[in-house]
Design a protein around this nucleic acid. Sequence first.
DNA 1: AAAACTGCCAACCGCAGTACT
DNA 2: GAGTACTGCGGTTGGCAGTTT
Length: 298
Amino acid sequence: MGRSSICEKTGLTRGTWTPEEDRLLTAYIKRYGHWNWRELPKYAALCIWLIFLFGDEGLGRLPESEEVTDSNKIAMQSLNSELGLSRCGKSCRLRWMNYLRPNIKRGDYTREEDELIINLHAELGNRWSAIAARLPGRTDNEIKNHWHTHLQKRTKRTTIVKEAKPKPNIEHGAVGRRESAVPNCVHPNDITPLILESSAVIPISPPKSSDFSSSSTYDSEVVISENQGITDDSEISSDGFIEYDGNFWTEPFLVEDSYKVNDTMPVFVNEYSVSPLAEALYPYDLYNGCDMDMLFNY
DNA sequence: AAAACTGCCAACCGCAGTACT
DNA sequence: GAGTACTGCGGTTGGCAGTTT
């Protein structure tokens, strides 16, 4: 038996993220950045709760670091549990990096992307993060999954097809010449042509009907930003979030200006529309008795 | 119709690397 | 240099959805 995970030890939530958790995490990171993954989930719900209730003044109600007593911590954990972000930092980071962060390209892979992945894998091996760095908008996890579910099979099948034809048809020019040159092993530089040739022999399976299918189809490239419904990232920064390395407790306001679309509108609140945050909190009936001007235009 | 099987992908786990004290 | 905390990476798994029997 392996040792139990941190999440198991601490009773934190595991498994699939709910939309409410996504909204909470997104709203928090958009405002503060991911200054410390380990500490982030501990304070996310508390900060957003205070902002929601008291506007920016709410931040002033945050305790200084030296004031965070055990009873404070218990209260925070209780609050986080109530609000649904009782996740370990690692889980938050993974969710943000692989799914929630802006500019993630989802949907089918183009032929060019597949070619690039195959070439890069031949060059770099299973260094998925390095491969992902060369494919804008794709995450290492997504590329890894795509490789294992689609590309690896195709490369294997291509090899089998090639090996099953010991006498190349010279009439087909390059195909025949390459087959005769690489009977058992394939030079990295030859992999892409082999795959492309195999595509003519092995039909590419049609795309799934799922919105977020990662299967390959070269008819179109679907780019969906998961955060389009939350905010207009282009107004915030190139990445749409803040890298913050300061002390959160002592300098909570330093990133204040960078998250705002303009002077009056926080990024996760559209004027008088129901914000993701508001939606997330709605089940708790927090609107009752609140000043709507304060809530949406603080 | 339902059970069994398969494919896919989000999420988890454990380790390595890095920064800091 | 040792110890600790944290982040990032790659391998693996669990669960869902679709397909087959």
